[in-house]
Write a protein that binds this DNA or RNA. Structure first.
Lengths: 313, 313
DNA sequence: TAAAAATACTCCATAGGTATTTTAT
DNA sequence: ATAAAATACCTATGGAGTATTTTTA
């Protein structure tokens, strides 16, 4: 049952420290800051001179150190008083830091957010969310963990993660241990060269692309991969996937489209990226959609997470 | 009238700090050290559990930070509480340092002693004194300033020195600004080869060395130089100074004596150095002596100096 | 002599004690 | 059911105010 904090404390002798009054220490520094003038310091402290003298006397008695040499006017710091002043300033500055850091932590402005997701999410909706969060809470450390959905749920349960973003299935209503929030609806869109014949239509039937060379993102970055192929076969044709590019970078694929190598099938979040020479078109009769949702523990107790959620929703 | 200390303090916000109670901070750390068990901490602090709870509540209210999560037993530190604990420990350790350093300074165990002397003193009686002082007060910085007697007095007056060791003339009784203490009586001795004919006598008349080759330390390290020559002439002979060596090191001169190059005239403090092949003899009729004394300001106010004097006297 | 710190006293805010209730396991 | 923390109330130490004296330049 021994913990480290106890060992650290053994360096500290709390009993004599607790006898001191922080107020008296501040009084001392205020006097020094006022050229060792008790009366002026008292005025600044909004107390009378007499009690201030008393408090300093009490402090000196507690410390068993004469801080001021009162045989001269203006009163002078003794060498011991000067040493004390010097160390005291940095000590109290650090104490102030302790308070501020604690307050920041309590407000969720300081801390850690451990976030789980799949690479597909990392490449689509996540950047926007993180940018927003970082702008608002620049001193929160973001830990991004790339995990499978199953691993994410396990890590949430083990309190290794604060929140996970993934295409989770909806929770049962009876499940009160978790909370879930849909944050994005993903479907598929076509990216066409601007002069492509199909571009004339606002919505393009799936069958219309049966003869087109089709560019798809790599399997690992494109969760719709297999579903899309299956949907095409169900629609009566084998899609001509000309190149399953290993490029995970959207702009590479768009470049290929502009170059006339084919038309691309992409997740709908690409709509935020406009590129010269490219038009996006919906697929009229493709029921492929998936909901990206955030999942977290109902009883998390993390203000950092609370802040993250308030931006997310 | 602006001083640096005031500028330093501008970093510090003393008002909120002075609202805090050091005692409460110590209570907090004691609770943490006791595994977040209020009752056990209260026992260790020799107070009751109820007031301890009150104090922590008051602290949390002052800080506007929840330090403990009381929804679980045992009570747990909140993230903010843990951040606070961490910074608080080092802050209070530094405060403890401030107190201890101030107390050491007040006891004269920490500080500076600025000491003036001539090189002749530095090479004779000083090493013993300094060794003693350093053994007793290892954390006092010794500043040694090699100055002429006149410079030493000036520096003492300007409070640039704490004490000077030199062959000062005695103070007038009326002089209350200075204090003086004789610390050594220096005269001259002869260093002879062990088989020298004169070694038979316990005391040697000055005239007996009229025909001897005489080795003297260099003028700068030997304040008796001119006085000794004059004394010889007064006694009716011109001393045969075979070599006014530039060697200030005593052992070099003693080596020359052993080698039979002559007999040496040296300050009496060499008596503490015994060397094989060397005998020391007093000069019977030579009234050359000088008193090395310590000189310091009567109103110095330095405990370090006080401690030094108490070893000196 | 005048400005500043110390002293003597009075009052009251708050830390701590006692008794009891509430909460979490 | 039990251990532990919170709440309510009371007491008393000591911090702050007022008036005055002492000290230093």
């Amino acid at each position: 049952m021994l913990d480290l904090s106890q060992l650290n404390l053994s360096q500290l002798n709390l009993v004599p420290l607790s006898q001191l009054e922080l107020r008296q220490l501040c009084y001392f520094l205020t006097i020094v800051a006022n050229g060792n003038n008790f009366s002026r310091a008292a005025e600044q402290l909004h107390i009378e001179q007499a009690p201030l003298s008393q408090r300093i006397r009490a402090l000196e008695k507690r410390l068993n150190v004469e801080l001021f040499d009162r045989r001269h006017r203006p009163v002078q710091l003794t060498p011991a008083g000067d040493v004390f002043r010097h160390h005291l300033q940095s000590s109290l500055a650090q104490l102030q830091q302790a308070i501020e850091q604690a307050q920041r932590t309590a407000r969720g402005e300081l801390g850690v957010l451990r976030l789980g997701m799949a690479s597909s999410v990392a490449n689509s909706i996540l950047p926007d969310i993180l940018r927003q969060f970082r702008d608002r809470y620049p001193f929160v450390t973001l830990e991004l963990h790339e995990l499978t959905a199953q691993q994410q749920i396990q890590a949430l349960h083990d309190r290794q993660l604060d929140i996970a973003l993934e295409a989770f299935p909806p929770l049962a209503d009876s499940d009160t241990n978790w909370k879930q929030q849909v944050i994005a609806q993903e479907s598929l869109v076509l990216a066409l060269p601007i002069d492509h014949p199909l571009a004339a239509q606002a919505q393009i039937p799936l069958r219309a692309i049966a003869q087109e060379p089709i560019i798809l993102p790599s399997l690992s970055a494109f969760p719709f991969y297999h579903a899309f192929i299956t949907a095409c076969i169900d629609a009566g044709f084998q899609p001509q996937v000309v190149q399953t590019t290993t490029a995970t970078w959207l702009l590479t694929i768009l470049g290929m489209v502009v170059a006339g190598m084919g038309i691309a099938v992409l997740p709908s979040n690409v709509l935020t990226v406009q590129r010269q020479g490219i038009l996006y078109r919906e697929i009229a009769d493709l029921p492929l959609t998936r909901e990206i949702s955030a999942l977290w523990n109902a009883d998390h107790g993390s203000i950092v997470l609370e802040n993250f959620l308030s931006l997310l929703i």
